Simulated scan of single mutants.
Amino acid sequence: MQTKLRSIILFILILAIAGCAQTQQAARTKTGQGAAIGAAAGALAGAVIGHQSGNRRTGAVIGGLAGAAIGGGIGYKLDQQAKELQQIKDAEVRREEDRLVVTMSEAILFDLNSTALKSGAKQQLEKMAEVMVRYPENDILVTGHTDNTGSEKYNQDLSERRAKAVKNYLVLKGISARRITSMGFGETMPVASNATPEGRQKNRRVEIEIKPRQQPAS
């Protein structure tokens, strides 16, 4: 029994390593990474299913192949969406594992201490919404951030209202309200030092996280 279990674990590891090799060969994208993660997860799930059906090795193979296909497809779509979002002025787009993060500075979006979107910001957010509408399988989280100037309570409230303003505008431009959530983090998540004007400016921002929706377990 233990010998069979070790064989299954070894087989899953081989699938995961093979998926990682595919990641390295992906041409400057992370599509392969999605395939690698999907292969490992699929192999594990397949092994469990195979155990229940009496054929664990076949279950692991099927699960690994299915997981790689699904993971690779998700990664490809995120790469494509990133390319489209990168065409939008003043939007800083980066890929973080299984999600995209779009950062827009306060200077682009709002006047000082204001929660009213600037006209130029509305134009950029409208273009962003046009891209997001084409990828309905993704959920969106809008987060507001401030520097540490002023009271903690004021900054928390300001960050929440700014995140909500961005969310509401994206909904107005066609994003389903069920797909999008907003949160404020105030001054608690700086990306630079608050000791300099340049650092404080970087910390005053809104981030839009785009992530494939998690499917409920059947």
Rank of each mutant, 00 (worst) to 15 (best):
I12G: 04
G50P: 01
A43R: 14
Q52W: 13
Q214V: 14
A116F: 04
G34H: 11
G42K: 11
R178S: 14
Q156N: 12
G59R: 05
H51K: 15
V166F: 08
R161I: 15
T143M: 07
R94I: 02
E126I: 08
A82E: 10
N148T: 01
M128H: 01
E97V: 02
R213D: 01
R178H: 01
L158W: 10
L170I: 08
Q123S: 07
P197C: 12
K153T: 15
K127S: 05
Q33D: 01
A27F: 13
T31V: 15
T3F: 06
I175V: 14
R213Y: 03
V61I: 15
S7C: 05
G54E: 13
I9L: 13
T143H: 05
Q52F: 14
L100W: 04
Q87T: 05
N113C: 00
R6V: 13
T188M: 10
V133R: 07
K122Y: 05
R57S: 12
E84G: 10
A195D: 04
N113L: 00
I140V: 10
Q201D: 03
K173I: 09
V133H: 00
T149G: 11
S114D: 06
D79S: 07
R179I: 01
P136I: 14
V206Y: 08
N194A: 06
L158K: 07
K89D: 00
A129Q: 03
H51C: 13
A91S: 02
V142L: 07
D79C: 12
K173H: 09
L117N: 07
Q22K: 01
R204A: 04
Q25Y: 13
T196W: 09
Q81M: 13
G46L: 14
D111N: 11
I17K: 04
E160I: 15
G144P: 03
K118N: 03
Q86C: 06
N148F: 04
K30V: 14
P136Y: 04
A68T: 08
I12A: 07
A27I: 15
L125R: 03
I8G: 00
V191T: 08
R204K: 12
K122C: 07
I208V: 11
G150Q: 06
S114R: 01
L109S: 01
G71Y: 12
A121V: 09
K127V: 10
A107Q: 06
Q24K: 12
A43C: 13
G184R: 11
T3V: 09
D98L: 08
L158I: 14
A69H: 08
I9G: 07
R99C: 02
N194S: 09
M189H: 03
G50Y: 06
M132G: 11
M1V: 08
A26M: 08
S53H: 13
T58L: 15
Q156W: 10
Q81Y: 08
A47P: 02
V93M: 03
L65V: 15
A69I: 15
A16S: 12
E187F: 03
T23M: 10
L85H: 04
F110P: 00
M189S: 04
G34I: 14
E84S: 13
G64Q: 09
G75V: 06
R94C: 01
S119H: 02
P212R: 11
